[in-house]
Design a protein around this nucleic acid. Structure first.
Length: 308
DNA sequence: CCCCTCACCTGATCGC
DNA sequence: TGCGATCAGGTGAGGG
């Protein structure tokens, strides 16, 4: 399902609900959904039970809920004592939605078809709720992972399994110049590069096709021969399409992509290329075509999008 | 080190 | 109603 806008919609929905919530109990209905967890199910359960979530973060298509460090009550309480500064989290619950994952927040009685992992949460203000991790294809997962400092931003931490993921283009610390430099050094096609999460993260098949259509670039345009103005335009279109999709709540073709309340986004109505094969190009009127590329579909306009 | 292919999985849907 | 084929928005291990 889910590319950056869809994952961000889920993260934003989780943040107010789970921050401060305690994990009362855990049910592993299908252990394959722990594919990114380093240990056995019991290790996951033992470490997560009783933990309190400190927030909800995201990079690219990965999101994670840092686990708050237990507050150590001072032995001696004096009126002048300064409350202890919160200790930064060292672990997080990492969630990747894969192709078909969903995170649904429910009351404690509601179940969802294809739930693989269920967390019962209790929040000091919001009461009890249930977090259902639903995933048809089991390409997604939950995992407990330790947090490591990022090399380029002081005080910032990411899970170890996210450390190799590049910043996404909506990240304020995304380095445009570095991206252009690394892109130019590649010897591959532009769509491959856009889908490479270690170069730029958050873009999947839908938004790659949409951004390339908007920038009038053919998916197999060699990266090395892409001029700087065209690369600049492409990055701007990538950002524009991600921001617009986010504002519309993400892309849903069916119930496969939903926010934490189970509702669909509206961006599918704004698609210009993805899934539009046979329909007229909104720019020139000639048909959008679909070609097999990287074992998936590439949707584009032969006339508007050239390898120049 | 870089690039690319492929395996990993299930269930909803569609045509016969 | 049943059955097989088809399809899907991602990732990273491993080979060249």
């Amino acid at each position: 399902m889910p590319e950056l806008p869809e994952v961000e919609v889920v993260r934003a929905g989780l943040e107010p609900a789970v921050t401060g919530a305690r994990v009362a109990s855990i049910e592993i209905l299908d252990a394959r959904s722990l594919r990114r967890h380093a240990g056995p199910s019991e290790d996951f359960t033992d470490r997560l039970e009783g933990a309190v979530f400190a927030g909800a973060s995201r990079r690219g298509k990965y999101m994670w809920l840092p686990l708050a460090q237990p507050v150590i009550e001072p032995v001696e309480i004096s009126p002048a004592s300064i409350p202890p500064a919160p200790i930064p989290p060292t672990e997080a619950l990492v969630v990747h939605l894969g192709m078909s994952g969903q995170v649904l927040l429910r009351d404690r009685y509601t179940d969802d078809n294809l739930t693989r992992i269920r967390l019962e949460l209790s929040h000091p203000l919001h009461g009890d709720l249930r977090l259902n991790f639903v995933d048809q294809r089991i390409f997604g997962s939950m995992a407990l992972d330790s947090l490591v400092a990022t090399p380029d931003v002081a005080g910032e931490h990411v899970p170890t399994q996210v450390a190799h993921i590049a910043r996404d283009p909506l990240d304020p610390h995304f380095d445009d110049a570095l991206f252009f430099k690394r892109l130019a050094a590649r010897n591959t096609g532009i769509k491959r590069a856009l889908l490479d999460q270690s170069l730029i993260s958050g873009i999947g098949n839908i938004y790659a096709d949409e951004a390339l259509w908007a920038a009038r670039i053919h998916y197999d345009q060699p990266t090395g021969a892409l001029t700087r103005p065209r690369a600049t335009r492409l990055l701007a279109e990538v950002r524009a399409v991600l921001i617009k999709a986010l504002a519309e709540g993400g892309t849903s073709f069916d119930a496969q992509y939903v926010n934490v309340n189970g509702n669909s986004g509206y961006f599918s109505h704004s698609l210009n290329a993805y899934g539009q094969q046979g329909k007229p190009c909104p720019r020139c009127g000639r048909p959008i075509v679909r070609e097999q590329f990287m074992n998936r579909g590439s949707h584009f306009c032969r006339f508007c999008q050239k390898t120049r």
